[in-house]
Amino acid sequence: MARGLSREDKQGLTLIGLPFGYALIMLAAPLAMVVTFSFWTQNYLDIDRTLTLENYRAVFSQPIYQTLLWRSLRISLIVTVVTVVLAFPIAYYLSFHVKKNKALWLFLITVPFWTSYLLRVFLWKVILGYNGVLNTALLKAGIIEEPLTFILYNANAVVLTLAHAWAPFAILPIFVALEKIDRSLLEAAEDLGDGPFRRFWRVTFPLAIPGVVAATLIVLIPTVGDFITPKLVGGTDGLMVANMIQIQFGKANNAPLGAALAVTSMVVVAIISVGIYLVGRKIGGRVAR
């Protein structure tokens, strides 16, 4: 290709220009602005535009923000592990044991995800509540004598609800990775004397790692920023950093502090995500071509 832009290049760039321009104006510019904003301060209605680290000092020194950040991180990591571990066998089942109607299974898995997110979270509250579906059923069956109280308005409820909400996002990437595995590799492992267990850990699992990593990141990143679930089923011990961001932008009327919290949590999540990605690359199996 000659130096400079060819005709092909130009046509491609013109076409991509519109969506790219939109993303620049509506995403890059706002993100840059949030970062700037987090270095400003607010007095009631006035924004003081002198650059200062005051918000970040608050974020890193005041116990409430530290608690919320750590808790969000802990809950998100637990949610991610639970979701991915529960999803893996389903993806495996779909890929290796379902012969017909794979598309139907995939459709059935995604249907609950298309109900209103708010209502799904709310319905978990109905299931887990003191007089909820689960407690009533267990009482009737005589398994428990007193309604269980540890299942609603705490971190457990948040984990359960989020693991449910993000299930399809974990299943699909793992399923895609498993589908890509060349089945002759498995036969080769068997011919060479590996039992089903060894075959799984030495061939299937390493080759599924890219899907597992994708699933982990897809679940981890957005759950850190969720504030509906903690608010509806989390009680006071289950509140997360996103609730605080929302409060700062709303009632507390300290948007710059909210921005600082948002930026901090984003940076922390980004670092963890890169870490997970690199570890995945290291331990994931590769097929030489």
Binding site: P30, P222, G258, A262
Partner: peptide, 22 residues
């Protein structure tokens, strides 16, 4: 293309907060 696809992995609250700040 990666940049245009970015909102797929950004928490929605970040998108919302940055838009409202702008």
């Amino acid at each position: 293309t990666g940049f245009i696809m970015l909102p797929l992995v950004l928490p929605e609250i970040i998108v919302a907060v940055s838009l409202i700040v702008m």
